[in-house]
Amino acid sequence: MSTITKKICLLGNFNVGKTSLIRRFVENKFSDQYLSTVGVKISRKSIEIETELDLHQINLMVWDLEGNTKFKPITPSYLKGASGSIIVADLTRVSTLENINQHADLFLKINPQGTIAIALNKADLVPQEKLDRLLENYGCYDNSQILSTYPTSAKTGDNVAEIFRKLSYSII
């Protein structure tokens, strides 16, 4: 079993739930309080991934970046050296969904070999029929480096571990 350390970043507009997703993934906790991330926060989670060849211990260094606002873009240097990225959008705010492409472009510009997974967060706040419609509109991206789109919920934990696992699997 080999131990591999990888850096992944969470990108997205402010208040889409990047920190909450990480907290759910790393600590399996959730809080309704909104605390804006300042600068960057780094978390670590070790997971095991089995491929056809080997069982890998993946040390994920998860970089939780400050969400961008109209006045403050994401600092590109924090993205450097990341193997993968989870771009997070808020299903209850259409503007954040529309920004996914912009974030993907920024990430791929800095890490041309990087892999992206898209988390459409706060799925628990959206009724099923609306969710289906939104997934239809924002669920497909014509880019081989974008793995897929997951409706996630940090509150209920839906798809959170899965999206991290899928991304880890594709970057090793």
Binding site: T5, K7, V40, I42, R44, M61, W63, Y78, K80, G81
Partner: peptide
Amino acid sequence: DSGLIIQEIQKQNVGKQGLDSDMLAGMLTA
């Protein structure tokens, strides 16, 4: 770029936990 540890050497302190190298390296890089 990534802030990943390539190599680490820590002094062995009896009764004390070593530094969390991954986190430290990440934060230093940030």
